[in-house]
């Protein structure tokens, strides 16, 4: 549907405006609903701060003893941890609240109504709501990235900063596509709602530079589950030591996985037969 609308730039612009308006009203409503639970803000702030302190403690365990992490300096490892915290915050803000509802829609049959809406179903399912409780993580993560980069003595040019942003966006797209594909398998296996939890638990590996792992795991976290592109590559871009091949690979993986998620969704919908049939 979205593809059809792309013909003609006037039509395209109108579509973008329509989707943007929908997005604003979705998120406005979500924010209003979440504000009912203000005490949660305090809990989330404490949880994010506590988790960050804990991660720093773990990191210090590796460096205190001279063990190190794959040849990365303590300051550079901070940048990786910051990138992870940012991505984790984005996951809590957008991915987790949206994609966890897909299973419920399949189970209750309310996916019927989603498909009937005059809006792209993947767009609706992926961006319908947002949870403000991941925002402290994003802010704290960015602070950690900046502090780590300054301590590491990095002098990124504007180009490096833009490249880092681009790599982070690529990381987000890869993460989103993986998560969405896993959630979409619920069309066949309704009871896989916690498959995304498995994904999330593996992603914890991205807290540390990928070169800190033994060769087998390093391969696994690059080829099978591309954790390397999520945190290590953006950190390398900011520290000005990313190689062109890694940057290109990250962009390529991002585009391919996004296309794969699109293809998988249209494929999965062919097998959707509503709840009672």
């Amino acid at each position: 549907m979205l593809g059809d609308a792309m013909f003609g730039s006037k039509m395209f612009r109108r579509t973008v405006v329509r989707y943007w308006r929908s997005l604003r009203s979705f998120w406005g409503a979500a924010l209003a609903a979440e504000m009912e639970y203000q005490i949660n803000l305090l809990i989330e702030l404490l949880a994010t701060g506590g988790n960050l302190a804990g991660s720093l403690f773990v990191l210090s365990l590796f460096y205190r003893s001279g063990h190190g992490l794959g040849g990365w300096s303590w300051e550079a490892a901070l940048v990786v941890l910051g990138m992870y915290t940012v991505l984790d915050g984005i996951a809590s803000t957008l991915l987790q609240p949206n994609l966890s509802t897909i299973v419920g829609h399949v189970q209750n049959g309310s996916l019927d109504y989603v498909l009937l809406k005059p809006i792209d179903s993947q767009f609706w399912l992926s961006l319908r709501t947002f949870s403000p409780w991941g925002l402290p993580g994003i802010v704290l993560g960015l602070v950690l990235v900046v502090v780590g980069a300054i301590l590491a003595g990095a002098t990124p040019s504007l180009q490096d900063v833009l490249l880092t942003g681009l790599m982070l966006i690529c990381g987000c797209l890869i993460l989103y596509s993986l998560w969405f594909i896993l959630a979409a398998t619920s069309i066949w296996f309704v009871k896989v709602w916690n498959a995304t939890e498995v994904l999330r638990s593996f992603l914890a590996a991205g807290r540390y530079p990928i070169s800190a792992y033994p060769i087998g795991l390093r391969l696994f976290f690059t080829v099978v589950l591309p954790v390397a592109f999520l945190t290590t590559v953006p950190a390398e871009a900011l520290l000005g030591r990313a190689s062109f091949s890694w940057l290109a690979a990250s962009g390529l993986v991002a585009i391919l996985s996004l296309l794969a998620s699109r293809w998988f969704w249209t494929f999965a919908l062919r097998f959707y037969t509503s709840a009672s049939s």
Partner: peptide, 18 residues
Amino acid sequence: LSGVLPFIMLGLWSGASG
């Protein structure tokens, strides 16, 4: 399966410079 954290940590403690 989602309890893989100990294996990730094992990778880190046995990998790295070791």
